[in-house]
Design a protein around this nucleic acid. Structure first.
Lengths: 345, 345
DNA sequence: ACGCTAATCTATAGCGCTGTAAATGTCAAC
DNA sequence: GTTGACATTTACAGCGCTATAGATTAGCGT
């Protein structure tokens, strides 16, 4: 057996170099399509590569270059439709740009979220895209991570960190205006969730209120439904309780699609027709919106835009941009499907 | 400045060793909680680690050990509820076992699936969990990958490769039996999808047929609905067409939850009540099943069991097990919610 | 105090690749 | 035929860590 070759292991760059009778660097140059390699040499090396079935060891390359071409995506959980869809677009877009995605689920756990910020992934990834829900602006600013990072969502917006979200208040205003245009005047908000420390609900509620005031309607606190949690059961209970106590409403603006599904169910049980008697407007425009009957009208954040914008910002940082935090608003639209229509009297 | 230290970069093992005045290996021992380190030494080193804020470079560790502690999860797409939920459980379980997950979306692309099998991830991950839908048994057997791999789903079951699925035919029989027990006799199957090359539908259809025959009912080919695709619109069209042509049926066994949503919608539009007139049984028990109104009864694969079983098999392989392919059946159940009930006449 | 075993620590050679610096080739222009 | 000016190729020192083998120290019985 030739010295230097190995029986068990994989084929290394060195093996190819020996086979082709050239230096390792030349093989490396061929692998990387380096400009100044003569056609003959390129072919000779390529033949050796093919014959040996060589494939570069990415870990070694990473150690040598310091670049991992991997990005961590930290989300509360990947099977909630909104996050699943964000993950899908970020995954697709990252692939297109030559990055791999490592998914990290923080599972609503404060420590897990802190771990993300504390560079848990350091040396593992070139950057991280993080959608926090439990830790806020101050804490992130304090734990300021060394790894390039882009934040998603409304939970935290440190001045020092890049950030992508949609204009929640404006979207809520647009939603309410749609409902108003349908002659709806008693618009409920589903829901103010007890213990919700994120700003999402607050911003949406703010826009809801502003739109009402702008239309000359005084917001009725009774119409802001309270919920014990984020599940569909919580939402159903909130609407059912409202109906039970005789609350009059002809539309429901929901803080997410799950609550919209809850509204649909509770209204069905109560015998109120959607959209004839009550309009329901969802938020997030997930698979739930497409699957329900009637299909759900909803505020639809442009998830692809969120993904590409986050990646744009992150790539800047990874290339060395060191400025203060940039704040990007991604577009959204209000999609009308089957749960909104002009009020029938 | 002390020689050997560096200003710009991160703190390395060597820096800690110098600071504590010990060898690199001792620091490494402390980091890894090696048994034979004296308490005094351990403390001295730990102090240096803390003072310098040292964190190991995972890439370097990987190169040295050859272990990446990463697993690739290759799925068609991560935002379809079934895959999203599988990803969630595999992610959680992998985290528990000390692995990170790299997500790869094959997006229904044959080449992308081949790339997974061709060790696209080699040297990047210790193993891969792969749910193919476009390439079959033979091709996987032929491209036999070197990286440990576990297959999910019914598309491919090479003898040489480990594999996890549920007993589709039996689950279909169980589902039909539930419907039969509800006095349903005209059970439609939604749907035979044109161009579907996976075995999933075939196995489910087989179980459907077997259960019917076992009950003394001759399967009516008319009841096996045809669909042009897997979307909800395709499903709605299939059911609507059936109703249109006067097909009589009092139950629908669906090959996935999306088709069940389609059935719910088409039946609603046609004015048929669910479950009074028509029972609908979904398959996968995803978030769609929990969110619909009425809540969907469904065949419910034990996704956590699928995840843990897949990881068990994969860990075996990663530890060197080299036997022939093992075939594991994960449990499932038939969950009764609001879309199935005894037929009302 | 000595020998022996076990505990503890050190020195250093890789892991497989890339980047730098230097060596060698090539070719047109003089 | 020499000289530059590039084009092309090579040699090898790291990247930061782990693992092996060996050195040193400690503990204990005699």
């Amino acid at each position: 057996m030739a010295s230097g070759s190995r029986s068990g292991g994989r084929v290394r760059l060195k093996d190819v170099a020996d086979r082709a009778g050239v230096s390792m660097k030349t093989v490396s140059n061929v692998v990387h399509d380096y400009e100044f390699v003569s056609p003959r040499m390129r072919e000779r090396v390529q033949t050796a590569i093919d014959e040996l079935g060589y494939r570069p060891n990415l870990t070694a390359r990473r150690l040598a270059t310091g670049k991992t071409s991997m990005i961590a995506l930290a989300l509360p959980v990947v099977d909630q439709p909104y996050y699943a869809e964000i993950a899908r677009y970020i995954g697709e877009e990252a692939e297109r740009r030559g990055y791999r995605i490592i998914v990290e689920q923080t599972l609503n756990d404060v420590e897990a979220e802190r771990a993300v910020i504390r560079d848990r992934e350091e040396g593992l990834v070139d950057g991280v895209i993080f959608h926090p829900v439990r830790i806020g602006t101050l804490e992130i600013a304090r734990l300021r991570p060394e790894t390039p990072i882009v934040l998603l969502g409304e939970a935290a917006r440190p001045l020092t960190t890049d950030h992508v979200m949609i204009d929640n208040a404006q979207a809520a205003r647009d939603g309410v205006e749609l409902l108003l245009a349908e002659k709806r005047t008693r618009i409920a908000f589903l829901a103010d969730v007890r213990g919700d420390i994120t700003e999402s609900t607050q911003l949406r509620l703010l826009g809801y209120q502003e739109a009402l005031l702008a239309a000359g309607i005084r917001p009725d606190p009774e119409l802001v439904l309270q919920s014990d949690g984020f599940t569909i059961e919580d939402g159903v209970a909130a609407i059912a309780a409202a109906i039970e106590r005789g609350l009059h409403f002809d539309a429901v603006l929901c803080r997410d699609d799950t609550f919209a599904m809850a509204a649909l169910r509770a209204l069905r049980v109560a015998g109120r027709s959607v959209p004839e008697e009550v309009s329901v407007l969802g938020w997030d425009d997930t698979v739930l919106a497409h699957s329900s009957t009637p299909a759900l009208s909803a505020i639809s954040p442009d998830k692809l835009a969120i993904a590409t914008t986050a990646l744009d910002l992150l790539e800047d940082r990874m290339k060395g941009y060191g400025g203060t935090g940039r704040h990007r608003l991604a577009p959204y639209s209000v999609i009308e499907r089957g749960t909104t229509a002009v009020l029938q009297r």
